Measured scan of single mutants.
Amino acid sequence: TRVETATETAWISLVTALHLVLGLSAVLGLLLLRWQFPAHYRRLRHALW
């Protein structure tokens, strides 16, 4: 049971790290898009909202 718990903890930390990385890359990508294509971003936002 001790090994299982350790594996579970490792998986949880791995998944958390993955989610953090994905979230950060998504935010960075959005910022980059907004910085590179302001007109396109505004049009996209206008279409979405």
Rank of each mutant, 00 (worst) to 15 (best):
E8R: 05
L30C: 12
A10T: 12
T16Y: 02
H46K: 09
T7G: 08
L14T: 04
R34M: 07
T5L: 01
T5V: 02
L32R: 06
T1Y: 13
A6I: 03
G23V: 14
L18I: 06
L33F: 04
A17W: 04
L33C: 12
L18T: 04
V21I: 12
R34D: 00
L24C: 09
R42P: 06
G23T: 11
F37H: 08
S25V: 12
T9Q: 13
I12M: 08
W49P: 07
R34L: 05
A39P: 04
L30W: 07
E8D: 11
L14Q: 01
L14E: 00
S13Q: 10
L30I: 13
I12E: 01
H40W: 08
L31C: 13
L18M: 09
W35K: 15
A39M: 15
A26S: 10
V21N: 03
V27Q: 02
L32H: 00
T9V: 12
T5G: 00
S25I: 06
L28T: 04
V15H: 04
L14M: 12
W49S: 03
L28G: 03
T5M: 05
R42V: 07
Q36I: 15
E8P: 09
A10G: 12
V21T: 11
L33D: 00
T5S: 01
A26W: 05
Y41E: 12
L48Q: 00
L18F: 10
L31I: 13
E4K: 10
S25R: 02
T9P: 13
L20R: 01
L33H: 00
V21Q: 00
L32C: 06
L14P: 00
E8G: 01
W11D: 01
E4Y: 12
F37A: 03
R42S: 14
R2E: 12
A6V: 03
R45Q: 09
L48P: 00
L22M: 13
V3I: 14
L30S: 09
F37E: 00
T16W: 05
S25K: 06
T1A: 14
A47I: 08
G23S: 10
W49E: 05
V27F: 13
Q36D: 02
R34Q: 05
T1P: 03
T7R: 10
L24F: 14
